[in-house]
Design a protein around this nucleic acid. Structure first.
Lengths: 299, 299
DNA sequence: CCTGGAAATCGAAGAATTCAATTTTGCCGG
DNA sequence: CCGGCAAAATTGAATTCTTCGATTTCCAGG
């Protein structure tokens, strides 16, 4: 006859292996200890092997237990993923998201594509703009706003820290071509004012007593980065969003340090729709694990 | 709360998708139709979507059903594999297998390695030899014998058909170097007499009126094939076991056709031990699907 | 308008699961 | 050598789930 080993028995084994004890697994699964005990016995009967070597002090997996646990983990993970996918399909309605330029064009496209694929009934509208504009329209035009702000700003939910760094073309020599010789001013390509990074950069240069000259100014991040990548000027980028062709500059390159940035998610006050919550979860997961650069070394 | 969707519900969906009807799925799963119906209802409640579009004439998957079915299939497959692995671990005891030379050295090593890995408590003893010796010792020295025999022999359980073909080095030109010019005799490398392929080959050449000369004779398949691969002579191989370096010759090359071979499994009469049965199943699966050459064209 | 095949529904019987309480187990400190 | 203790096993009863046969509903085709 066909044996069907229920998911809860597998999950039971997986949880015991994680927690290292029947009692703690019971707590984690909101079951009594006796239930866990009998589930293990049932599982072992069905599998036909002792899976766990019990003693009052520790629970150890047997050989067969190791093997079966591998399958159980994969099965439980697939099961949970299947339910996530099913749940995602039932979320519907509009969400209006506003994102600052660089994330909208560099980091998020793929993530947002995955989101709309897995949430077929959500109508997602994305607007691109600058942090200071976007936040004022939160709650009216936008349900969710993703911004860059100075580390420690306090507003919104911080999803990720990013180092803010100077960058130039990876094919050119900084000191020779942009003159870090104190003789010639540093040539810069920056976003048009008013812009936070522009202000940080100029302030830092002034504080360090370096001379500079703005060679290129644009409201398009793409244009600014392309200019820097061409080797004509130095710019400022988030470490995590730098495109190929740009070399990130560290302290060794002689440029002043810049304040750290953080990526924050701002929700419209009031009741969040399921679609909003789903998008929040999605962004949180994508950005939180993605690449927190705050604790890493130079590139 | 954690939803655990039992394997039997998933298997139910998988079976319905296969059979295309609740009633047929019920029969396949040894359940009543009402049970299937309520399982589907429960599954749909847990998943939160209608999965099947029912009508008295056909059952169709919804979008959500398609998606979930993909997971269900994978989960059920993993589940069944896990049980297979667990079952394999409990098979124990000795098995004595005898295999003809070429399969023992070319086809089976990997298969047998997988077998012992998945059946850690089986003691497998493999003997290599020639078909005619091995069969006489079946039941005494051997529990299982794998042989090559002429197609249609009738003994044993046929696992696979193999074309029997002439072969020479893939870097040499047959007609020039081994003289298929009717002037010079065909140079041969064959297994030592008595050997079935040797007899087939010489008989076929004689029948075709071709002259031949045995250049090399050995009881080692490896030595014979190496000799052929070196370009010094032509030999006879099973199409499925030819090593790289050998070119299989077809009718176009001017050599006479050889009888087809079949690979057959012979079991010692009497009660088969679980270990024997496990090995039989394993060989059957490995060889049956492997590469039946009987219906394919020239190589 | 009936009919047939297929799914849904219903109610009852039975099986399986859960839990709290209790017992057993093996180790540790005194 | 002997409690004590923490953890797993067992027990038994209550509850919940599952299954099944019987019956009903549904729809397409004759």
């Amino acid at each position: 006859m066909i044996r069907n080993i229920d998911i809860d028995l597998m999950r039971c084994l997986v949880t015991i292996a994680e927690k290292g004890s029947f009692t703690r697994a019971a707590a984690a699964l909101f079951r009594s200890q006796s239930t866990i005990s009998s589930q293990v016995r049932r599982l072992e009967e069905l599998v036909g092997h002792t899976l766990l070597q019990r003693s009052p002090h520790e629970v150890a997996l047997t050989r067969a237990g190791e093997d079966f646990l591998g399958y159980a983990r994969r099965i439980v993970a697939l099961h949970d993923e299947a339910l996530d996918v099913a749940d995602a399909q039932s979320v519907s309605g509009p969400v209006r998201l506003a994102v600052m330029d660089d994330y909208a064009t560099i980091v998020l496209p793929e993530t947002l594509a995955r989101f709309v694929r897995s949430h077929p009934d959500v109508e997602l509208e994305v607007t691109t703009g600058f942090t200071r504009d976007l936040l004022t329209r939160l709650g009216e035009e936008f349900d969710l706003v993703l911004t860059t702000q100075k580390q420690g700003d306090g507003r919104g939910e911080v999803l990720r820290s990013e180092r803010t760094v100077w960058a130039c073309s990876d094919r050119h020599d900084l000191s020779r071509e942009h003159g870090l010789s104190l003789e010639e001013p540093l040539k810069l390509a920056l976003l048009s004012a008013p812009n936070m990074y522009r202000e940080w950069g100029l302030a830092a240069l002034n504080a360090a007593g370096l001379s500079w000259r703005i060679l290129f100014s644009s409201s398009s991040i793409g244009a600014v980065e392309a200019m820097a990548a061409s080797g004509a000027a130095v710019t400022i980028v988030k470490a995590g969003t730098a495109r190929p062709g740009l070399r990130l500059l560290g302290a060794a390159d002689g440029l002043p340090a810049l304040p750290a940035s953080e990526i924050a998610l701002h929700m419209a006050p009031g009741r969040a729709s399921p679609a909003m919550r789903a998008l929040c979860d999605f962004l949180r997961q994508a950005l939180t694990q993605g690449g927190d650069e705050s604790s890493q070394g130079e590139a």
